[in-house]
Design a protein around this nucleic acid. Structure first.
Length: 849
RNA sequence: GGGCGUAUGGCUCAGUUGGUUAGAGCGCUGCCUUCACACGGCAGAGGUCACAGGUUCGAAUCCUGUUACGCCCACCA
């Protein structure tokens, strides 16, 4: 094709123009006809659209895009869909704040409802569940447009015809179908059990969503009266407000201090409830007084004791985080019931104050509370400590209660190649540490409902143990508006009729099916067969225990295989002070602002410099370096192409040219190997390094010859070499600098560079001697140094260059003599053989002006 | 308590199977308007490779231990 090299090449405006071209030409469209072996499929993380994209997203999605582009150039048909995670609590919270509303399932649906014109944070309007869901859907559609436009701006090579949303119909159908299959096989079940509970959101949460936070607390010491009237049994607790929920004391079986008490009865202070003293090896003699008060439920250890010691359930906390308004029946004495009145209906905080005050009044409190700081469990999205309440929930087995399953899931982890490999430890330690099944039900509104109804008995009780299930071909359904087979709507809530399961699935229960949703499981068996199991799951290391593990669980049960062959784990973005980049700061630096300021290629360069799994500092400086690299590629390409076109059939013959190409072939091998092991950063680094020396040394060495100064053959060799090198370098850079490489490619090549073949050593003459270029470069540098040190222009003539070198290196240097003389404006080169172990020297004598 | 990772010039990082005087970019200093690029180029200064032992002809690299930082898991009366 004829060359069309602009006089003043620029990066301005190319991003918009090329993005439009890619869209119009379907550059990244997935070819559905490709066989599985030809496909490279990527399980893209669906970003939470209710948040905003931040620098961390740009970082990790760029990594995946680089791999996708590499695979595409390697000839793979890349399956690279984009999902939006739009269901669940984050969306609910965003809608509540955005519109100033809150969902109240008791409010009837108003078709004409409009959200308040001015949202009032303090007085949120209660609206029906249906209206609430409508607002959720309305807002997520808007959010998704914003996300897509940013991703396009970042140049992600996804096929935008293939997007999915975790609240979309496909996702709902897949989630419900998989749930029904899990249920049928006994992998899912419901149970009434102590559950970790967030009192703010009023929903159960899963083990994987917990985090510890250091909070101030205090040890409170008080005594339990012994039946024999001997001295009281003293305990220490950080949760005195749960004294009324006490059902036993427990000490270690070997603890001599308490051995005599095991089996005896003691009485709680204030409430005067008789509780047994028991033994359990989980009790630690060195904690507090060595004997602990078991309450239902202060923490997860309480749950263990309660279960293993078969204690009664004495809950005093309601789901809203307040104590029960009415005195519980196990408190029977007059004084005890009066004591309860003082904390009835209070928050945990107020109840604690009330109990402590009462203990102090009665003289039961021993000493003053001792302030401590201790870790407290929080829901990762919540800001109040979690409580434990008893409730009926849906679970999926995950090995937490089954060693055999746990081992099988651990083995699945070993089927996956982890990048970097050490990330596998995160997976293994999580699997080994599981202590309960996976709780998937949430008492929320904007999520995928469980496809389940229950019969209502004649007496009005709900038969939770006899769920009514829809057939798979009816999915997706909403049990709160759809009727179960054989019933009609009039029977909803009636004796002899049915009720809907009120819960929704947690968002992980859906996103754990991202491979099935994206690949068209059951809905599109043809696509599924071409794309599943997938090749790559890219994600952050913080969600190995949630997203990665839960996806493994679902695939294990349904398909008996790991859902992907590779897991590419990205690191985090760190502030300059080495802390994880905070949301507040991350939002100040908006991705769009970065792209505008540094150019997309500059930002991508910075991102791609972060090695897999390595936390990386946020560094605008590196983005500028990337932008400069893009400009250099622009200018170097223009320069090299304008030196003149090689005549047809021209091949590299000059030693300097062949030497460069030998190094280029090594570069190709190195970059390819790096990509094959998912080390895109290494591929970029090597290519960049080669490119700069190509510009500084080779281009300088050969430009005179390229002009034709040394004759036609020399010029042809130089030009043919430059063309080949340029073509290879542009392609090696293409996965990273996707815009500028496409721009320079378009000057002289047909089609998109992103559809061009990844460079191969087969296209590069490999018989050159790398030594020629290797000795010419320092010689040229020595000439430049001399000129620079003597403050002369680089065009200043050199009278004489004396090179003292080893014989074989001198021989190589002689092969570059013509180019070196031209590039250094030398009059002559003298060669002196270096003997012994001496060091090579370059003696430069500058000439007169 | 168990585990993983990191530690290289002021800053950000390379250094892949141990091999000659440890590299790059940024920043700093100096020079050059050179016919691709002045938002450019060329060059210079700057490092006892966290510390202590060990293996070796030879260690930033391998082994042992220590320290610091980060993270994961467990515990959390």
């Amino acid at each position: 094709m004829t060359r069309s090299v602009p006089d003043k090449p620029s990066l301005d405006g190319i991003e918009e123009a090329l993005a439009a071209r890619w869209e119009a030409e379907g550059t990244y469209a997935f070819d559905r006809g490709a066989e599985r072996a030809e496909v490279y499929s990527i399980d893209t993380p669906p970003p939470t659209v209710s948040g905003s994209l931040h620098v961390g997203h740009v970082f990790s999605y760029t990594h995946t895009d680089a791999v996708a582009r590499y695979q595409r150039m390697r000839g793979k048909t890349v399956f690279y869909p984009m999902g939006w995670d739009d269901n669940g609590l984050p969306t609910e919270r965003r809608v509540e704040n955005h519109f100033g509303v809150r969902c109240d399932p008791n409010v009837p649906y108003d078709p004409g409802f409009a959200p308040p014109a001015k949202p009032d944070d303090k007085r949120k309007v209660a609206i029906s569940r249906r209206s609430f869901v409508e607002l959720c859907q309305q807002l997520t559609v808007e959010d998704e447009k914003v996300f897509e436009s940013l991703w396009r701006r970042l140049g992600l090579s996804v096929d935008w015809a293939m997007t999915y949303a975790t609240i979309g119909e496909t996702a709902r159908r897949a989630s419900q179908r998989m749930f029904l299959r899990n249920l049928a096989r006994g992998e899912a079940y419901s149970a009434e059990a102590p559950t970790i509970w967030d009192v703010t959101f009023q929903t159960a949460v899963a083990q994987a969503e917990l985090e510890d936070r250091e909070r101030p607390g205090a040890y409170h010491r008080f005594g339990f009266a012994r039946a024999d009237g001997q001295g009281a049994v003293e305990i220490e607790t950080t949760r005195p407000e749960l004294l009324a929920a006490c059902c036993a004391l427990v000490a270690h079986p070997d603890d001599e201090r308490y051995k005599p008490l095991f089996g005896t009865i003691v009485t709680t202070p204030l409430f005067e409830v008789e509780v047994p003293v028991l033994a359990h090896e989980l009790a630690q003699p060195d904690k507090g007084s060595g004997i602990a008060m078991i309450c239902t439920f202060g923490d997860t250890t309480d749950v263990t004791w309660w279960r293993e010691l078969q204690l009664p359930t004495r809950s005093i906390l309601e789901r809203n985080g307040r104590t029960k308004a009415d005195c519980p029946e196990w408190i029977t004495t007059g004084a005890g019931r009066a004591a309860y009145e003082r904390l009835a209906g209070k928050t945990v905080f107020s109840a604690q104050a009330a109990v402590v005050e009462h203990l102090r009044e009665t003289g039961a409190l021993i000493g003053e509370p001792r302030a401590i700081t201790h870790p407290v469990k929080f829901y990762e999205k919540g800001d109040r400590p979690l409580e434990i309440v008893t409730s009926r929930q849906w679970y999926i087995r995950n090995g937490g209660r089954d060693a055999e399953l746990r081992a099988a899931l651990a083995a699945r982890g070993a089927e996956v190649d982890w990048h970097p490999p050490f990330m596998r430890h995160r997976y293994e330690s999580w699997v080994q540490g599981l202590n309960g099944d996976w709780l998937i039900s949430r008492q929320r509104y904007f999520g995928i409902p469980f496809p389940v109804w229950y019969p209502v008995e004649a007496d009005g009780t709900v038969a939770n143990d006899r769920p009514i299930l829809p057939p798979e071909d009816a999915l997706p359904i909403d049990p709160s508006s759809d009727c179960p087979p054989g019933y009609d709507e009039a029977q909803r809530g009636q004796p002899g009729g049915f009720v809907a399961d009120p819960d929704v699935m947690d968002t992980w229960a859906t996103s754990s099916l991202s491979p099935q949703i994206a690949c068209g499981w059951e809905d599109d068996p043809d696509l599924f067969a071409r794309t599943f199991p997938m090749d790559l799951r890219p994600q952050g290391h913080d969600i190995i225990r949630t997203w990665l593990f839960s996806t493994m669980v679902r695939s294990h049960f349904e398909h008996g295989v790991a859902p992907w062959r590779n897991a590419g784990i990205s690191g985090w973005i760190l502030d300059p002070d080495r802390k994880k980049m905070s949301k507040s700061k991350g939002n100040v630096v908006t991705p769009l602002g970065l792209l505008e300021e540094h150019g997309t290629d500059g930002v991508r360069y910075w991102a791609a410099s972060g090695r897999p799994g390595t936390d990386t500092a946020f560094d605008p400086n590196q983005m500028n370096v990337g932008r400069r690299l893009a400009k250099k590629l622009l200018n170097a390409s223009r320069f090299a192409l304008n030196l003149g076109e090689a005549p047809p059939g021209a091949v590299p013959t000059a030693a300097v040219d062949l030497s460069l190409l030998a190094a280029l072939a090594r570069l190709v091998t190195e970059a390819t190997n790096a990509f094959e092991s998912y080390d895109y950063a290494r591929a970029l680094e090597r290519t960049e390094s080669f490119f700069w020396s190509f510009c500084d040394d080779h281009l300088e060495l050969v430009k005179q010859r390229s002009y034709g100064d040394g004759g036609d053959e020399g010029a042809a060799s130089a030009r043919a070499t430059l063309e080949l090198t340029l073509s290879v370098l542009q392609r090696l850079f293409a996965p990273f600098l996707c815009f500028v490489t496409e721009e320079v490619w378009s000057w002289w090549q047909e089609g998109s560079i992103h559809r061009a073949a990844w460079p191969s050593v087969a296209e590069i003459p490999g018989d050159g001697d790398p030594l020629v270029a290797a000795v010419a470069a320092p010689a040229l540098a020595a000439v430049r140094r001399a000129k620079s040190e003597q403050k002369r222009s680089l065009l200043w003539p050199v009278e004489r260059l004396v090179v003292t070198e080893k014989p074989e290196r001198l021989a190589a240097l002689r092969l570059a003599e013509g180019d070196l003389i031209a590039a250094g404006t030398l009059a002559a080169i003298e060669y002196v053989e270096l003997t012994g172990d001496g060091v090579a020297t370059y003696d430069v004598t500058l000439g007169p002006a």
